[in-house]
C-alpha cells in the first residue's frame, strides 16, 4: 500500500498513546491519501479524537511516528504543526467568543502575516497594507462559508451551526494543505449538515486533503473517498465507503455483537 505516493501523504506508523495504563491508541498504522476526503469512524471512545490530537500536536504520542509528506510531526508543538500546513477544527466548537466573526478569521491569517510587537506598537501606518490584505483574504473565506453579512457580530453570539462554519473558515484562512475536521456536523440539523457536506466537497475541489471524524454515517458515506474504522484504538477495516458498509467486522463493532 505504501508504495503508491498519493496514498502516503500522511503516514501514521505504529502510533501509540497511553493515559496512565489505558491504551487509547494501540499501535495504529494508517495512511491518508493526498487530495482525498478520508473519514475516521468508530464507536464512541474508539480513540478518533485522540488520533487527531496526536497528529495536530495537542498530545505527545507514547510511541510511534507521524509524518506529513515525509516530514516528521511527532513531538512538535501545535503552532509548529499549523505552520507546516495543518489546519483543524474542534469537536466542542472553539471560536473566540468575544471577538467578531471577521476577527476570528483574521487570526487564521496569523501565519500568513508577520508584523511583530514592536512595529505594531510604533508604526501602525506600516501595518495598513498588510492589515488590508488580511482583511480581504478573511472576507473571501467568510463569503465561502456564507457568513459575510455576519462579519461584525461577536462570534459567541452565533448559532452553533454558524460557529462550526466559522471554525472552518478560520482554519482555511491558514491556507492549509490538509484539514482535520472533528465532527463538523455534530449538533447540526439536516439542512445545515447538507450545507456542511457541500462545503467540505468544495474544499476538496481546491486540492486540499481532508480528514474527517464524524458520526453522521450518511454524510460520511456520501462524501468520503476512503473510510478507516477504528475500535479500541486499533484499525479494524479500511476501504471505500461501499466496502466498509459491507464489512462484517465493522457491523460487529457498531452493534457490539
Amino acid at each position: 500500500m505504501t508504495d503508491n505516493p498519493t496514498r502516503s501523504f500522511i503516514v501514521l506508523d505504529r502510533l501509540r498513546k497511553e493515559f496512565g495504563g489505558v491504551v487509547a491508541v494501540n499501535d495504529l498504522s494508517l495512511n491518508f491519501a493526498k487530495g482525498q476526503i478520508s473519514a475516521l469512524i468508530g464507536p464512541n471512545g474508539a480513540g478518533k479524537t485522540t488520533v487527531f490530537n496526536l497528529i495536530t500536536g495537542f498530545l505527545p504520542p507514547t510511541s510511534g511516528s507521524i509524518t506529513l509528506n515525509g516530514v516528521n510531526l511527532s513531538g512538535k508543538k501545535p503552532h509548529r504543526i499549523a505552520s507546516m500546513g495543518v489546519g483543524r477544527t474542534f469537536q466542542n466548537v472553539q471560536v473566540f467568543p468575544a471577538m467578531t466573526v471577521l476577527e476570528n478569521v483574521m487570526v487564521g491569517r496569523h501565519l500568513r502575516s508577520r508584523c511583530g510587537m514592536a512595529v505594531s506598537c510604533l508604526l501602525p501606518q506600516a501595518l495598513r497594507p498588510e492589515e488590508k490584505r488580511i482583511r480581504e483574504a478573511s472576507m473571501v473565506w467568510l463569503e465561502a462559508v456564507g457568513l459575510k453579512d455576519q462579519a461584525d457580530r461577536t462570534a459567541g453570539s452565533l448559532p452553533l451551526g454558524s460557529q462550526r462554519m466559522l471554525e472552518i473558515a478560520r482554519a482555511m484562512a491558514l491556507e492549509p494543505s490538509v484539514l482535520f475536521l472533528d465532527e463538523p456536523a455534530s449538533g447540526l440539523n439536516a439542512r445545515e449538515t447538507a450545507g456542511m457536506g457541500d462545503l467540505i466537497v468544495k474544499i476538496k475541489a481546491m486540492g486540499i486533503t481532508i480528514i474527517l471524524v464524524e458520526h453522521d454515517m450518511e454524510l460520511v458515506m456520501d462524501i468520503s473517498d476512503n473510510v478507516a474504522v477504528v475500535n479500541f484504538g486499533s484499525l479494524i477495516a479500511e476501504g471505500t465507503p461501499k466496502d466498509i458498509q459491507a464489512n462484517p467486522d465493522v457491523i460487529n463493532a457498531y452493534l457490539g455483537a
Binding site: F58, K77, A82, G87, R88, L111, A173
Partner: peptide
C-alpha cells in the same frame, strides 16, 4: 487550543 491550532505561539 484554537489559537495554537492557527499557529499562535
Amino acid at each position: 487550543d484554537a489559537a495554537s491550532s492557527l499557529g499562535v505561539n
